[in-house]
Each structure stands twice: as structure tokens, then as C-alpha cells.
Computed example of a mutant assay.
Amino acid sequence: MQEFTNETFDLDSLPKYEEIVLTSPNAKYWNVIVINLSIILLFIGGGLATIYYFIEDDKPKAIYLIAGYLVFCALLFTVHRLSFKKRGYALREKDIVYKSGIIAEKTTIVPLNRIQHVALDQGITSRSYGLATLQIFTAGGQTGHLHIAGIEVERAKNIKEILLRKLDQIENLIENQ
């Protein structure tokens, strides 16, 4: 019978995830974000214009609505641009790391043995730029899932194949034990 041990870790000797070199999304993914945001903002602008048109009493001055809408659009694009620059991922031997966020940076590290399913997704806009989103589903529920957008299709397929091979290796190890 194996002897039970419960040693403490020297936290300074553990690898630092902050030192990992992350791969940024493809630069063309910014175009996808801009197109998608523009479409959404066109619908919002059209809706606001329609509402403004049907208001009969006390119409606010159109210049204030337009100025407010343009400020909102500028802020939205600025936030998305800053967010785009902060994104990154890394595939390591035993896990995959994804970092995002502007004000509150979020780093998700998913051990390969927790991955249950890997999928590729391509929206209409992403497909036209040759990009895909790598979706990694884990055993930990919704909080552990990763959606890494802005990866070239071929690279995403390669990462998916690598992950699937690693999953097969892990499964074979478990079966042999």
C-alpha cells in the first residue's frame, strides 16, 4: 500500500503563468470585429431614428441625439480595440492558456485532461477573412469553456488536431491503469 503524503508546495518554485509568451489573434480579426460592430450599430441607429421620427411632442434636438450616438460608437470601438490588443493564447504541454480583458484581466488555464470536446466555428465575416474560433469545452461546466477567436483556419485545425491527439493519449493512459 502506498504511503499517504501531503507536502506543501514552494510557491516560488512553481512556473509563472504571467511569463508565458502568448499568441495574439490574427490582425485581420480586427476587421471582423469592426464589421460586426458596424452592423449592430447600424441597427441601433436605425431604431433610434425610427423612434425619433415617431415622437410627436417635445422632440429633443437631433444634434444632441446624433452627438450622443457618435460618442457611444467611439467609446464602443475604443473598448473593443483595447480588448483586442489584450487577448492572447498559448498551447503548452499540459494545458492551454487564454488571456483577455481590459480593466479586469482574466487568465484561464485549462488542463488538457479536463477537455471533453474541441470544435471549430466560422461565422460569415470570419470565413471571408480565413479565420475561425476554436471552442474548447471542459468538464468544469460553462466557466471553464474557452472560445479563442481570430485564429487562422489552418492553424486552428492544427491546434484542434494536437488537442485531440493529446486527449487520445490521456484516455489511453487512463484505460491502461
Rank of each mutant, 00 (worst) to 15 (best):
A104S: 15
K106T: 15
Q177H: 06
D58Y: 15
A49N: 15
G68P: 11
K94N: 13
H147Y: 09
L70A: 15
A156W: 00
R127Y: 03
T8Y: 12
I103Y: 14
E3R: 14
L48W: 02
Y53M: 03
L146V: 06
E19Q: 10
Y52E: 06
F9E: 06
Q2C: 06
N26H: 09
E154L: 14
Y98W: 07
L167C: 05
N176S: 11
A90E: 08
E171F: 01
L134F: 00
L70N: 00
A104P: 02
M1I: 10
E152L: 05
H80E: 11
A67I: 10
W30Y: 09
K160C: 04
I35E: 01
L41E: 15
Q177S: 12
D10V: 06
L146K: 12
R81E: 10
T125C: 09
E3C: 04
I124A: 12
D121K: 03
F84C: 03
V97S: 13
I136Q: 01
K166D: 04
G141V: 05
Y64Q: 05
V71D: 11
N113E: 02
K157D: 14
K166Q: 12
P15W: 04
V34F: 04
P111I: 06
V32C: 11
L48R: 02
F4N: 10
Y52P: 01
L134R: 00
H145Y: 01
I170F: 06
Y29F: 10
R92N: 08
G140D: 13
I44N: 04
E152C: 04
R155S: 08
F43S: 11
A62E: 09
K99M: 07
F9Q: 06
A132T: 09
G130S: 04
L131H: 07
L48I: 14
G46S: 07
A132H: 05
N36F: 07
Q135A: 04
E7T: 13
G101Q: 08
P15T: 12
F84D: 13
L91I: 12
L11N: 13
S83H: 10
Q122A: 11
S13F: 06
K85W: 00
A74M: 09
R165I: 03
L131D: 13
L91Q: 05
K94W: 02
Q169F: 15
E7K: 11
H145Q: 05
L120P: 01
L163R: 02
I162K: 02
I96T: 13
T78Q: 07
I109V: 14
N6K: 10
A156Y: 00
D168A: 14
L76Y: 14
Y129P: 01
G144K: 01
I102V: 15
T138P: 00
R114D: 02
I170L: 06
L120V: 03
V79L: 10
V97R: 15
K28I: 01
A74Y: 07
T107M: 11
A104K: 15
